[in-house]
Amino acid sequence: MLAGFGMMTESIYKSGSNLEKLLAAGQFVVTAELGPPKSADLEMIKTKSGYLRGQVDAVNITDNQTAIVRVSSLAAARLALEQGVEPVMQMTCRDRNRLAMQADILGAYLLGIRNLVCLSGDHQCFGNHPTARHVYDLDSIQLIQMVRDMRDRKIFACGEEIKNSAKAEAKEPRMFIGAAANPFADPFEFRVIRLEKKIAAGADFIQTQCIYDMDRFKRWMDMVRARGLHQRCKILAGLTPIKTAGMARYMRDKVAGISLPQALIDRIEQSKEPKTEGIRICVEQIQELRNMEGVAGIHLMAIEWEHKVGEIIGLAGLLPRPTPPE
């Protein structure tokens, strides 16, 4: 993980992360999510990391998710790494301008972080500082391009080389670049075009918004394959197990860009054990996605349910997780 530079630059890999290696080897990968604590609580990061260690290939560390202040994704990603979890650091465009972003990317690389997901970020009106000023100096596509240029062209956003002086050698941060895609937002036909823009900008992998409406996801994947996008970029299908019917209704009614069919809500409602039923639905979804051409893995966002991830992955027959090739 903390391998030296020379080795990295010789490598056939862009970043050398586990996630990149497993995807390159054609493994069906599993990523999960770890939401950092809302206080300076190291124990919580350790506990959550413990639930996920060995159960998944890499773990997204969210960046002030839903615009609520938490331990920074940079710090939490490093701490997760120390707990034996490969982090996928998330970075949103809401809270930082291009200077802060590039500084954090350099720092993250030095701290051993090799995967970076570039996001617009939820608007601050959803969080606990709705009167804050947002940044959006760059948007997510421009951020992807910047991270790619830092890695492949060894330049900053301004075009300057990433080196200490004219004679020094360039020391660039080498990230495996992720992005998000939402097949359930509008305008539907434009969603794949925007995905293609992200791929052209440099996205190596995509994690989708959580899928409940499998029909719409299939139609989206048809469009993805028609454009050959699954061959240019690895697509991980996003899933969030439903815990209660109330949670399902909340997501359907209150969260923008989520489509949740009534049939699923009925299943949870009619079940005597809604949590078990939620897990069962999730496992069925994994099976269906595994057989879908162009889906390279899943991204399991078990919100405040990290301790159930191992169980879900096990039931889906995806354990033990493979060891990445050298």
Partner: peptide, 29 residues
Amino acid sequence: SKSLSNGPCGGSEEGMCEVDPERIECGWQ
């Protein structure tokens, strides 16, 4: 609402913006 140059973000639904789906149209739509 985010001044994106490459929108729309994932919060665009039926022509409306995630910030206020009742009142704010999605500029990118």
